[in-house]
Write a protein that binds this DNA or RNA. Sequence first.
DNA 1: TAACGATACGGAGCAGTGTTCCGTTTAGCA
DNA 2: TGCTAAACGGAACACTGCTCCGTATCGTTA
Lengths: 180, 180
Amino acid sequence: MSESKPKRADARRNEKTLLDAAAAVFVASGVDAPVRDIAAKAGVGMGTIYRHFPTRADLIIAVYRHQVEECASAGPALLAAADSPHAALARWIDLFVDFLVTKHGLAGVLQGDGFDTLHAYFLERLVPVCAQLLEAAELTSRVRPLELMRGVGNLCVGAEDNPDYDARRLVGLLIEGLRA
Amino acid sequence: MSESKPKRADARRNEKTLLDAAAAVFVASGVDAPVRDIAAKAGVGMGTIYRHFPTRADLIIAVYRHQVEECASAGPALLAAADSPHAALARWIDLFVDFLVTKHGLAGVLQGDGFDTLHAYFLERLVPVCAQLLEAAELTSRVRPLELMRGVGNLCVGAEDNPDYDARRLVGLLIEGLRA
DNA sequence: TAACGATACGGAGCAGTGTTCCGTTTAGCA
DNA sequence: TGCTAAACGGAACACTGCTCCGTATCGTTA
């Protein structure tokens, strides 16, 4: 939540290196890539990774934080710009789905199980936005925001270069069902 | 797909013991329980488990095979008995969801990742049933059967004693969206 | 009933995870 | 230039699923 202290210069450098390496490895091998691989790619030892990011999840968060923030701030913007609250909600969900689907394995990791930190972060950040959109669309009686987010997240699992599974279509159906 | 050979008596006994132990452990600790725990509970060594069930997934399949078969055969029955194909589909999906949701962690395991055998078995067995129901309901243009099954399975992930996440509701919305 | 070969068993051991620990190195200040 | 807190590296740990092979047991046959 804050900057703490911008300590030593080499530490700063390593953190950036680590973030870049992690991002690269995530693209290449998915979010489940072994920590060792990331350390190797960055040319640092295990200890270094764990000093900067106490847990695998923290590293993932750090890598994707920027995009999560982007998605969060897109909510109000869409609400202001779109034709209707419904449309805004649909567009925003699309954004979220795009984000998840293009990150190999990210959706799978949203499901708790040792990734409590990650899970909590995503939800903390995005659920309020979702709540706002649902309220504007007068759909609060149909689903709770948290529920919808988790549902959409779940639907995105395994939707990577899988021609037999189109998460977007299913999410679309879910949203359609929302206003029936 | 056949009975092979009903070999030695102690082997038969152990297989039953193993199945019972696994079922018990699954209820207590979820489907992700370590193989060692199951072996311990059954009072046998690791080797014994792996002789009977070449892989963790095979053990899970064996434990739940009966219920999967039940679910599969419920499809045609519902189609014959229900008021409409739609109703039959909805009821059948309910059955499937109940099955997944009451088995701690089962849904999570449906998502491939080393459980290809399990995944394949479930799908092989249930997708045709789903296809039949979708055809009867004239919904084949809206989703492919495989897609729907996977989607529903995904929605059930993490719906265990979780007051904030009602998989049944979301699946309901999805099905509603199907006929919009 | 005794012996013997096929069958099944047990559990140590391997390989691959995430994470911790601590001796070593280094940045940056006096 | 020295010195100390900060940072580093990677061996080691705990925990997985799974394999391997020496040992025990079954059940058949003489």
